[in-house]
Amino acid sequence: MTSPGTLAVVASRIRADEKRIFDALDRRGVSYVHVDSRTMWSSADIAPLPWDRALNREIGHVRAAYAAHSLEAVGTLVVNSARATEVCGDKWRTSMALRSAGLPAPRTALALTPTAALTAIEEIGYPAVLKPLVGSWGRLVTFVPDRQVAETVLEYIAALPSPQSHVVYVQEFVDKPGRDIRALVIGGEVLGAVYRRSEEWRTNVARGAVTERCEVTDDMAKLVYGAARATEADIAGVDLVEDEDGRLLILEVNDTVEFSGFQHAMGDRVDVAGRIVDHVLTGVPTWRE
C-alpha cells in the first residue's frame, strides 16, 4: 500500500468520475494530493517530485502525455503510463498496436495528406468514416457516404491550420446494430461491459447514448484483455462494435476512462472508482517489465 502523502491525482477538470475517485480515496483513508495540471511545470534539472505514484486523469491528451512523461522522468509511477497515454491517445498508434497483437479491427488507413486521403477512402470503400487522430466523444467524426462528400470534407480538412489535422485517419464504416460496447479492464481484469445504444450512428455516452449491461462472452473478454495489453493500459476502456455478421471489432482503447455510464448500467455489481484506486495503490504495473 502506498504511504500517505505519496499519491497525486492529476486532473484539471473535476467531473463526477473524478469525485467518485476522490471519494473512494477518502473512504480508504488514503492521503493524496489533487494536482491541477494547469499549474504543473517541470525542470529538467530538479529533484524528484514528492509523489511515488500518480493517477493521471488529465482530460487534455497533450497535457496528459507530457505530465506522464515528466513524472516518470523523476521516478513517479504513473497510471496510465506515458506510453499507454501516447498509444491510446492517438488512434493510429492504437490501430498499429492492435494490428501488432493480431486483434480484429475495422479496415483502417492513415493518409499523410488530404490528397492521399481521397485515394485511401476509395481503397477502403464507401461509406467510410474520418476521425481526428486525437479526441473523443465522437467529436468531428465524419460519415462519408460517397466521393462527393469525401472531396468536400477533405477540402475543409486541407484548410485547417494545424499540420496534424492534415493527417487523415480513415476507417471503414461498420453498420452496427444501433449500439456499440464499452468494456472496462483494470489491472488486466475485465470488470464488465455495457452496451451503448443511440438513435445516432455515433454511440458515445457524451452524445446521449444510454447504457445497459452487456454479458461478457469469452471471446469478448479475450479481445478486451488483448487490447489493454497491446496498448499497455493499466486502466482501459475498450470500445467494440459488432459487424453485420456479429463479429466483434475493436474500435479504440481509452486511457482516461469516463465511467459514469458504465457504473450506472452495472449498479452495485462493481465499484469502478474503488477498483481504480485499489489498483493504483497496490496493483501496478500490469504490463510493464
Binding site: S12, R13, I59, G60, H61, V62, G89, P132, V134, G135, S136, W137, R139, G237, N254, D255, T256, V257, E258
Partner: peptide, 11 residues
C-alpha cells in the same frame, strides 16, 4: 466560466 472544450480533450 469553465474552459471551453479543446481539440485534444477526451478519454
Amino acid at each position: 466560466l469553465a474552459p471551453e472544450v479543446e481539440e485534444d480533450w477526451g478519454e
